[in-house]
Amino acid sequence: MKNLDRLLVSGSTASAVTDLVIPALLLRAPHATWTELVHIYVPTSPTVAFSGRDLRSPGITKATEIARAAGFETVVRSPGGRMVAYDSGAVVIDHLDRTTGIRHAGSATFAANASAHARVLRGLGDVDARVGEVDGEYCPGEYSINVGGVAKVVGSAQRVTSTGSLFSTVVQVAVSDPVRAVIADVSDALGYELRLSSIAGLADYAPSLVADEVARAFLKDYRDRLGLTDGPLPGEVAAHAFTVTPDKWPFHVDDWTRAHPVPSA
């Protein structure tokens, strides 16, 4: 019999909004039967994921208009950090843990995840993955992952609440021209400095890599390293996520989940 206490879930829901609502709902879901859940997927919708910090910029309205005109869904995600843009050339990892609390927030969690993620990337081939911020990167962070000390390929952000923690990671595998352009244009609208050459994907250095292959490598790592069991998203959470009907953009994940909690069984 499978142990569904520690779950590994794969696959996108086919919607940027539901993909980003699901981890916020999971973090707040009452009476959860799991203690740890990792959701790894290749997004199907071009997405600009803003943070609460981005909302404080006077340029947020312009940034949203730019992103949506370029064909990107605009969502304010639950974790912190700054804006990130991605499409089906990326891999997203949402790691939820209901056994952790505010004492687990901070650099130790970022360092441990960055070390594990960089090891996976180095195992994919000729990828000189290193942990550390590069000059002029988007969504800058001490524990970003770069290639060769030149360009950022992975970024992470965290949210910790009284019910647990969410550690979210975006791995850029093949960065399309629209993604490069929207990162540049939205960063400019928000007033963020950006070095264009810091935007890259793994395929810029290992051209044979594709997002599905990278997702499989991370799925294997989480199975082996944390002993997670493959399974589906909790049904009540997945069903509730599909009730979202955005009435404004950018759509604010935390506002919606606070107003529409998962019904108790």
Rank of each mutant, 00 (worst) to 15 (best):
P207D: 08
D255V: 13
G235Y: 09
R258V: 14
K220Q: 14
S197C: 09
A211T: 00
L194E: 05
I183E: 01
T243H: 14
H260M: 06
F242P: 09
P207M: 08
D212A: 15
D221C: 09
L228F: 06
A217T: 08
G201Q: 04
P250I: 05
L190R: 00
V214P: 00
D204L: 03
D212N: 12
I199H: 04
R216T: 12
R258Y: 13
P234T: 10
A239R: 14
L194Y: 07
A184N: 02
V253Y: 00
V253S: 01
L233I: 10
P232C: 11
W249K: 06
G201Y: 01
T257P: 02
H252F: 10
P261K: 04
A241P: 00
L209D: 02
D185Y: 04
T243I: 11
D247T: 14
L196S: 12
R225Q: 11
P246I: 06
T245N: 15
G191R: 12
H252R: 15
V244W: 07
L233H: 08
L194Q: 05
T243C: 11
P250G: 05
A200I: 02
R258K: 15
W256S: 02
P232G: 11
V210Q: 13
D221F: 14
L228G: 00
V244K: 10
A215Y: 00
D247A: 14
A200P: 00
E213T: 14
V186D: 00
D255G: 09
D230M: 12
W249P: 00
W249Y: 13
A206K: 06
E236W: 10
D230H: 10
A200M: 01
F242Y: 15
H240D: 09
L202S: 03
V244N: 08
D188M: 11
Y192I: 04
T229I: 09
R258S: 15
T243F: 11
K248S: 15
A203W: 03
P234R: 06
A215N: 02
H260F: 09
E193P: 04
A217E: 05
D230V: 12
L209F: 06
D185W: 06
